[in-house]
Structure formats: C-alpha cells, structure tokens
C-alpha cells in the first residue's frame, strides 16, 4: 500500500468559484522523497493546505488516502495525529505562548489521540534539548514565544524541530527554502535528511531547484494549473532549472 495516494483531487477556495486543483493524481511511497515543482499559481501551496485540512478550501471531488484511509473528512488535528505534518512556508507567531508549552501541548495532544499517556516532563525536556542541539536551536530560542521575533531561518529551524519531535509518517514541506540563506538551508536540509527512513515519506514543495541540491528527491513531479503534468527522476529538476517551466507547461497545454 502506498503511503499517500491522491486520486482526482479537485478543490477550490471556499468562497470563490475558481478551481485551483483540477483532478490531481499523485502517489507517494514509504521511504520516498517526492519533490513537487511548479510555477507560481500552479496550486502548490493549495495542495499542502488541502491535505492538512485548512478550512478556507473546499474539496469538490476526489480523495486522499493516507495509509489507505481517506483523510479528507478528518479535522486538521485528527490528520496530524495520523502522522501528517506540514512545515509552513510562513510559520505563525503565537505571542505569549512559550515554545516549550507549545511543543509539549502538540506532542501530548497527538499521544493522547493515539491512546498513549502524556510524555513525562523529564523525558520531554531531554528529547527537546537533544533535537534542538542537532538543529542549532539555542536554549534562548526555546524560552521565547512561538516564532515571535524569530528570523526567517530560525522559524524554519523551528519547524524542523517540531517535525523531529512529532515524528510524522508523511511530512509536507511547503517552500521551506523561501527566505533562507545557504547556511540556514543546509541546516534545515540536514534535519530532513536525518529523518529519512524506509517508513516515512516526504513531499517537498519548492519553486527552485536549489533546495533539491541538499534534499535529494527520489521523484520530481511538475504541477501546473492544478494537476501533475510531468513526473521523472531528480534530473527533471535540473532540466526545469535550465529551461524554465514554460517549455513543459506549454507542451502540456
């Protein structure tokens, strides 16, 4: 069974008529890193939001199976507990809520939904401190409010930290490279690479090939006008980098 199987997914913004996803089909296997590339406005971010269950979008047709179960009727927190994680393009600030409070709330909320007891605090502290160190997150960052006053790089590293703590089955990275300098990009990529495993899949959404120098994809899909128009190996990304999207998009149209 595939980790993620999207069949004929059609979706639009809840308060607009225009379809953004138009019968999208996509399969991601366990252990696979699938890159999704595409021009602006092709529906990349919409795909990530629809999979994570954002309310602003309405699914008008199709299904998305995670481990064989259609998740489109589940609430965002239920999807999260089933192992779906979205690394945000623009992580959200929550003033006054300490990082540790937030991380612990997230970890325990998911544990409870999966019938586990809360993680004992000492164990949790040890886990966070260990992962934070690997990602170059300073103790000071852990004492601050969630994402408040963080630089672009810090925010993305913070997303990586959350991913490392929550150990998802399927991680969707939405334009993780935006706003990152090379050093920050490397740290985030190292974090993802360290989590690659035969049981876990990644969907790496990106506009530029650059990120894929650091996170080597197994497959590359090209998204245009709300559907996958071409799939190939890592070399497809390089081809896009050299020739631009117009060539492929033109052919498909």
């Amino acid at each position: 069974m595939s980790l993620l199987e999207i069949k004929n997914l059609t979706a639009k913004l809840a308060d607009e008529d225009k379809q953004i996803l138009n019968g999208l089909n996509l399969t991601v296997e366990k252990g696979q890193v699938a890159a999704i590339m595409g021009p602006n406005g092709s529906g990349k971010s919409t795909l990530s939001y629809v999979l994570a269950g954002r309310e602003d979008y309405e699914v008008t047709d199709g299904e998305a199976l995670l481990d064989g179960e259609n998740i489109l009727d589940l609430s965002p927190d239920e999807r999260a507990a089933k192992g779906l994680f979205l690394a945000f393009q623009y992580p959200i600030e929550i003033p006054g809520v300490g990082q540790m409070t937030f991380l612990k709330a997230a970890v325990n909320a998911q544990r409870r939904k999966n019938g586990l007891d809360d993680m004992p605090t000492p164990e949790f502290m040890k886990l966070v401190n260990g992962r934070a160190k690997e990602l170059g997150i300073s103790p000071d960052m852990l004492r601050r409010s969630v994402n408040v006053g963080f630089s672009g790089g810090e925010k993305k590293r913070n997303e990586s930290l959350q991913m490392a703590l929550l150990q998802p089955k399927l991680a969707i990275l939405d334009e993780t490279d935006s706003g990152l300098d090379i050093d920050a990009l490397k740290i985030v990529a190292d974090g993802v690479n360290a989590m690659r495993s035969p049981d876990r899949g990644f969907v790496v959404i990106t506009h530029y090939q650059r990120l894929l120098d650091y996170i080597k994809p197994d497959v590359v899909h090209v998204l245009s006008a709300g559907r996958i128009i071409k799939s190939g190996g890592a070399e497809l990304a390089l081809e896009l980098e050299a020739n631009g999207y117009a060539d492929i998009v033109g052919k498909a149209a």
Partner: peptide, 20 residues
C-alpha cells in the same frame, strides 16, 4: 490552523492562544 496542524483540538488551541 497552525495549532491544530500540530495536533491540538479547536478547544485546546483557543485555550493556548488566549492564555498566551
């Protein structure tokens, strides 16, 4: 959405944000 994507229910998310 951010809180819920991390696993918090709607009630938990509101409580967390307001307490902050």
């Amino acid at each position: 959405f951010y809180c819920m994507q991390r696993g918090l229910t709607q009630e938990e998310a509101i409580a967390l944000i307001v307490n902050g």
